[in-house]
């Protein structure tokens, strides 16, 4: 056996040199590259984590701002609704007042018109009643009607106060008897006698006059008194009562 010590020495040096060469050009650069990639990956991960945190914070800020905007919007909507409600209430109140005023004015106008219409119809009814009465009276017997109306005049004289009758008698006043149709001359002394007796003044001067507007009946006019027992007076009284009843 012949061991080659020179080869042992040279191979030892060769392996050492190879170890150095590979360490310099292979192991260390590749390991450094792996480490650099790992560090870069860690840095990227850390950066990504930081950016994720920033994004999370930004998201939270955005969410908070959105909530604030929603709150502001709700407040604005509530204020607008309140203002609109106030305006609506005011408009409704004004409209209600105007409507009430218009209704009141319309009612007043309607009442006025109704009163005017009723007055007009009352006038027309009075005229119609007068016309009807005249036509009816024209068909009645004049002497008996005159007698009835004379009795009514005498009753009213009798209902006058005693002082009034005495005053008329004391003054020797001239009385005027108005009839709707002329009193016949033969009947005039009897009419005068009855009326003078009713006043307690037998010699009283009585004049006679015919007035068709009385329709029917008699009216006795003195200096200070009027005794009406005619349809014209009755119709005037009825008309007055109707007009008074139509007053609002």
């Amino acid at each position: 056996m012949n061991f080659d010590w020179w080869t042992l020495a040279i191979q030892t040096v060769n392996v050492l040199v190879l170890v150095w060469l590979l360490q310099r050009f292979f192991w260390r650069p590749i390991a450094a590259m792996i480490e650099k990639r790992r560090a870069d990956a860690a840095s990227l991960l850390a950066e990504a984590a930081a950016k994720r945190e920033q994004a999370t914070a930004a998201l939270a800020d955005a969410e908070r701002e959105r909530n604030e905007l929603v709150q502001r919007q709700d407040l604005a909507v509530a204020a607008a609704q309140a203002a609109a409600e106030n305006a609506r209430t005011a408009i409704l109140a004004t409209a209600r007042q105007e409507a009430e005023a218009a209704v009141a004015a319309a009612r007043v106008a309607i009442d006025k018109e109704r009163v005017a219409v009723e007055s007009e119809w009352a006038e027309r009814a009075g005229a119609l009643a007068l016309q009807i009465s005249q036509q009816l009276v024209s068909r009645l017997d004049g002497a008996s009607i005159q007698g009835a109306f004379l009795n009514g005049v005498l009753d009213q004289i009798g209902k006058l106060p005693e002082s009034t009758r005495q005053a008329v008698a004391a003054q020797h006043a001239t009385l005027e008897l108005i009839s709707a149709v002329p009193i016949e001359l033969a009947e005039q002394p009897r009419y005068g006698e009855l009326i003078a007796r009713a006043f307690g003044q037998p010699g009283a001067i009585i004049t006679y006059r015919a007035d068709a507007e009385l329709i029917a009946g008699l009216e006795l006019h003195g200096a200070h008194l009027i005794i009406s027992n005619s349809w014209r007076a009755d119709l005037a009284r009825i008309h007055f009562n109707l007009a008074d009843a139509n007053q609002p």
């Binding site: 080869t7 060769n14 040199v17 190879l18 060469l21 590979l22 050009f25 292979f26 590749i30």
Partner: peptide
């Protein structure tokens, strides 16, 4: 004396070194 194995190792060293440099 330079033996065959030494020469072979030198060749292997050269090849590995070249590969290492290229890779680097």
């Amino acid at each position: 004396p330079i033996s065959t194995s030494v020469a072979t190792v030198w060749a292997i060293m050269v090849i590995l070194s070249i590969v290492a440099v290229v890779v680097r």
